[in-house]
């Protein structure tokens, strides 16, 4: 039975239309005009307990809006959503005790105090006994490699230490579902890797269902066997990450180094020419023609070196969003 289920989930915002400048301000003051902007339309998916799912999409695609509807912060305009057997936007205690939200840009820890004070507050709020809270803090701190950072004021912590403490605070009540919105934003490579390792760890140890959005493909490729790709409010893809690559480009990139330079026209029969710099050539060749094409290339030209690779996923998705292939 899925722990998260969304059916036909939609959210429409009403935004005010205001022209710039003094005249626009005055006109807006007298006669407000607004229009409806769909942020998320007809999104449906189901997530089983224990899954780690990545949310992909460019800025403004509707990732955060969807995440907020799942966590109960936003009321959907249409459709149904059920998380951990509850309707999120009712925000019942039973639901809230089962979820947690971490936002890379916002923090719940008290700025002027050590994280431990915030953790004590959270323990009281979630009704966790002191001894139990202590045990959990110890355990999570070990996993996160947090030590005396917990007793230093939050404002004196580095961004990476702060995010680790945020994760600790979010997991103290052992949520069944963890929502993460850009958890590695602004972190350096090491800290990013540590956060990823921790999330994979906690998922394996406790079976916490994890749903995360990230700009860093590294987070997604390292953590999420399954991705949901949202574009302009629509769910464009739901499945395994490698299947996404397959679907985005049924092509392979072939790099050649030739003994002699050749004119561009010579490569037209093989596939799309990506670049041609003297003796170096990059070609995109459809997957099903790959073997034949490579054989013919080797036969026709004096090839010094040949390399076949998958185009990097960042590039694929970036190109996809730029071209607006998704409709």
């Amino acid at each position: 039975m899925p722990i998260i289920r969304a059916e036909g989930l939609s959210k429409t915002y009403r935004v005010a239309d205001k022209q710039p400048g003094l005249l626009g301000t005055l006109r807006h003051f007298v006669a407000r005009r607004s229009r409806d902007v769909p942020a998320v339309s007809e999104v449906s998916f189901a997530i089983e307990p224990g899954e780690i799912v990545g949310f992909l999409g460019p800025n403004g695609a509707g990732k955060t809006t969807t995440l907020k509807m799942l966590s109960g912060l936003i009321h959907p305009s249409a459709g149904t959503v059920e998380v951990a057997g509850c309707v999120p936007f009712r925000r019942q205690g039973r639901f809230l005790r089962q979820i947690s939200l971490v936002m890379g840009q916002k923090q719940q820890l008290i700025w002027d105090l050590p994280p431990l004070d915030s953790l004590r507050v959270n323990a009281a709020v979630y009704g966790i006994e002191d001894a139990e809270a202590h045990r959990r803090i110890q355990e999570l701190a070990d996993m996160l490699e947090l030590g005396d950072e917990l007793t230093r004021p939050v404002r004196k912590l580095s961004l990476g230490e702060r995010m680790k403490a945020e994760l600790l605070a979010a997991l103290l009540h052992r949520p069944a579902v963890l929502f993460l919105d850009e958890p590695t934003l602004g972190l350096d490579v090491n800290a990013q890797a540590r956060v990823r390792r921790f999330l994979a760890d906690i998922n394996r140890r406790t079976g916490t269902t994890v749903l995360l959005t990230s700009h860093y493909m590294g987070d997604i490729t390292a953590l999420c066997p399954r991705v949901l790709l949202i574009h302009q409010g629509h769910l464009f893809f739901d499945g395994r990450l490698d299947a996404l690559t397959e679907r985005l480009t049924p092509c392979r990139e072939v790099r050649l180094e030739l003994a002699e330079p050749q004119p561009a026209a010579a490569f037209a029969p093989f596939g799309a020419l990506e670049s041609l710099e003297g003796r170096r050539v990059r070609l995109l060749i459809p997957q099903e023609q790959l073997t034949g094409a490579v054989a013919r290339l080797l036969a026709m030209f004096a090839v010094l070196d040949l390399e076949v690779s998958e185009p990097p996923i960042e590039e694929l998705i970036g190109r996809l969003f730029q071209q607006g292939v998704v409709g």
């Binding site: 966590s71 109960g72 912060l73 925000r91 809230l96 939200l101 916002k106 979630y126």
Partner: peptide, 13 residues
Amino acid sequence: RTGTLDFVLLKPI
């Protein structure tokens, strides 16, 4: 202003 009201709303209190 900072959007941290979200955290308060997600607390079971």
